[in-house]
Write a protein that binds this DNA or RNA. Sequence first.
DNA 1: GCCATTATATCGTATTACGATATTTATCAA
DNA 2: TTGATAAATATCGTAATACGATATAATGGC
Lengths: 131, 131
Amino acid sequence: MDLSAVDYKALADFRHAIRSFLAFSEGKASEMGLTPQQHQALLAIRASQNGEATIGYVAERLLLKPHSASELVARLESISLLKRKPSEVDGRQYNLTLSAKAERILRELSATHREELRRLRPMLSEVLKQL
Amino acid sequence: MDLSAVDYKALADFRHAIRSFLAFSEGKASEMGLTPQQHQALLAIRASQNGEATIGYVAERLLLKPHSASELVARLESISLLKRKPSEVDGRQYNLTLSAKAERILRELSATHREELRRLRPMLSEVLKQL
DNA sequence: GCCATTATATCGTATTACGATATTTATCAA
DNA sequence: TTGATAAATATCGTAATACGATATAATGGC
């Protein structure tokens, strides 16, 4: 306990940094016709080990309820950014794979995001150090 | 350009870390009867230099449109967490000050958030280093 | 004093995650 | 094997909230 003005400022600055990053991200995703959630779902799937992504996995990584992830995936499938294939080991599950178009979009988004994070990194480190 | 599996994983992990922090934060704020936005508005105001916070300032720090900040502040005032006093230098502005209750709530929230960020710090540093 | 700008407010709308609930498949105990 | 429970995904109505469009009032440059 016992918080100083510096602590409040660091916490507020950290929030501002996160919001900046998310605003940047939302803008970039939007340019590619994606919502932030759609972008992050694609990223989570892409970053998973070869084709082992399921709807439940998306829910887990995005901290959503499974049925919310189900809706999100349905929207992505409806705009042809991913395909759901019934799992061969568990009839309840679907394996998710990105379409070529989604791969392309995500590659571009990831490149700009990596740059932006590199740009924000010093500021983030500094703020975290304050705590 | 040219992204590796490591890059995608780092980006995905960074998202997951942010989401974890925000989920933690939302839970704590909720325990105190606040929405995340209300919590962050209080924090931004508290962290500002003595009483110089205005609605526009909240908008700026939370990256909201001014009229959205206006709504947010109105909700906070309606539950007695802050007071709006007409600015003495500019008749269009309001100066915002936290109520004693808000001060108490924010102090507790800030303490737990500082702890959580200290806990997440190593992970965040590690992920940022990967990029 | 006029006009553009700034600060704040109001209202209707769109988005989206959720709760409640349902369906299908898997698992495990007896 | 059967039966019960749990897990994975889906559907639908709802609530929350930031936004766009628009408005009002105050400021400041000229």
